[in-house]
């Protein structure tokens, strides 16, 4: 039986964002942009989608006079990402049997 993969998460850039946030816990906008090799606009668009869905949350702060925005996964986001990964794993396991 074919499992449904969360369409919102099933996107190369968003998966990259979620994986980095999962591994690092918390990351600022610039580090995320550099790690993923994206433009500011592109990253901001994807982050907004994830924010609107309650998957990531942000916190704005200052280092000296410089504003900095940190992103992290919400509990709901983490749970949704785990579900996505489990479905993907099951899907790939079914594929492995067919190979």
């Amino acid at each position: 039986m074919m499992r449904e993969l969360d369409p919102l998460l099933h996107n190369r850039t968003r998966l990259g964002i979620l994986t980095l946030l999962l591994k690092n816990g918390r990351m600022d906008f610039k580090s995320l942009r550099d790690e993923l090799g994206l433009t500011d606009g592109n990253l901001a668009t994807h982050l907004r989608v994830l924010e609107n869905e309650g998957i990531v949350k942000y916190e704005k702060t200052f280092i000296g006079r410089k504003p900095i925005t940190y992103y992290e996964l919400t509990k709901k986001g983490k749970k949704r990402f785990i579900n996505y990964l489990k479905n993907l794993r099951d899907f790939l396991r079914e594929l492995e049997i067919d190979l």
Binding site: T19, L22, L85, L88, R89
Partner: peptide, 25 residues
């Protein structure tokens, strides 16, 4: 896709699931 490549991806996914669930557990 070769079986070995698929296994590698599955291992990566397992690691991510483990990381995500570890803290909560």
């Amino acid at each position: 896709m070769k079986r070995e490549e698929l296994r590698k991806i599955l291992d990566e996914i397992d690691t991510l699931i483990f990381l995500a669930e570890k803290g909560e557990k």
